[in-house]
Design a protein around this nucleic acid. Structure first.
Length: 291
DNA sequence: ACCGCACCCTGAGCGC
DNA sequence: TGCGCTCAGGGTGCGG
């Protein structure tokens, strides 16, 4: 699932394919939960425009258009933003995968889950946004408009500061992991990196946030920064659907300590990693290292 | 203000 | 083989 590192890797690698190129054609699917802006309107309005800058805010991507408006993108759970020249089995459904000749590396053909295809005036590679579960989002923002989703976001998780998190967690009775997942508290952390950072910090995900000490918050902030930076370096985590815009897999999943490692030995102490359900989400931790 | 939970969506995996 | 069930989860919004 795309979290800050996957979104940042996507930003860095899609930027050269997007910035400065005039959009000549826009293909969308029909109106749905996916579109915050009606797709027909969106298509009409961005044709002829070019993205000038592409920035990341938490797990959102914001492309500044040359007419002052902006294109807001969120990858949700299964969103994939990639070049038409990319090729990866992760871009295919299992049925489509099975139908492939063994060893064949055919180019990606847009399917019913491909909600946005941008063609450019220069005739080069297209930029495509595919999202099977449609938890992702696309919106066109007016000049100067700050979308409420962006207005709500807390500080970017790459700059997590222990003192700040400590102060803002006082009196909070929710589990510390739940607070880390709250994008208004800290923007960019999702299920994988919350579990990883808490393991590095030696703090159990189920602890009441308000009872986590200043020293522990320092370690959590440090852990958050460390796992996010390291994952960006590794190209993100390709556990289920994530592929970089060029079709390559990330490698951070190979380094993860506890996430989706239920029953395996803790890399620090060899105790068996446990899974608990917290706020309807799975949390993984080491019962010996994390208190 | 805070917290818990239903909801949006679809593919995969499983039991029968 | 195939159906139906359950699970996965980011973010929003509502009710208590």
């Amino acid at each position: 699932m795309p979290e800050l590192p996957e979104v940042e890797v996507t930003r860095r690698r899609i930027e050269p394919l997007l910035v400065g190129r005039t959009i000549a054609s826009v293909r969308t699917t029909g109106p749905s939960y996916f579109y915050l802006t009606d797709p027909a309107l969106l298509a009409r309005e961005i044709r002829g425009r070019a993205v000038q800058r592409l920035e990341r805010i938490g797990k959102y991507l914001l492309g500044a258009l040359d007419d002052g408006r902006s294109l807001l993108l969120h990858l949700g759970m299964t969103g994939q933003l990639f070049s038409s020249e990319a090729s990866s089995v992760r871009l295919l459904s299992a049925a489509h995968r099975a139908a492939l000749e063994p060893g064949a590396q055919r180019g990606f053909v847009p399917d019913e889950h491909t909600h946005l295809v941008l063609g450019f005036r220069d005739g080069g590679p297209r930029v495509q946004f595919r999202d099977v579960r449609k938890f992702g989002k696309v919106a066109l923002l007016a000049a100067g408009e700050q979308h409420p989703r962006l207005a709500r976001l807390g500080a970017d998780a790459l700059g997590a500061q222990g003192g700040d998190l400590f102060e803002r967690s006082r009196g909070r009775v929710v589990a510390v992991k739940q607070l880390l997942l709250d994008q208004a508290f800290l923007a960019g952390v999702g299920n994988i990196y919350a579990d990883e950072a808490l393991h590095l910090a030696g703090v159990r995900p189920t602890r009441r946030a308000g009872r986590v000490t200043r020293e522990e918050w320092d370690r959590i902030a440090q852990g958050v920064r460390q796992v996010l930076l390291r994952s960006i370096e590794a190209g993100g985590s390709s556990i289920d659907d994530f592929v970089a815009p060029d079709g390559s897999d990330g490698a951070y999943q190979l380094e993860r300590r506890v996430y989706a490692r239920t029953g395996e030995p803790c890399p620090s102490c060899s105790a068996v990693v446990r899974r608990v359900v917290l706020a309807q989400r799975s949390a993984h931790y080491c019962p010996r290292c994390q208190h």
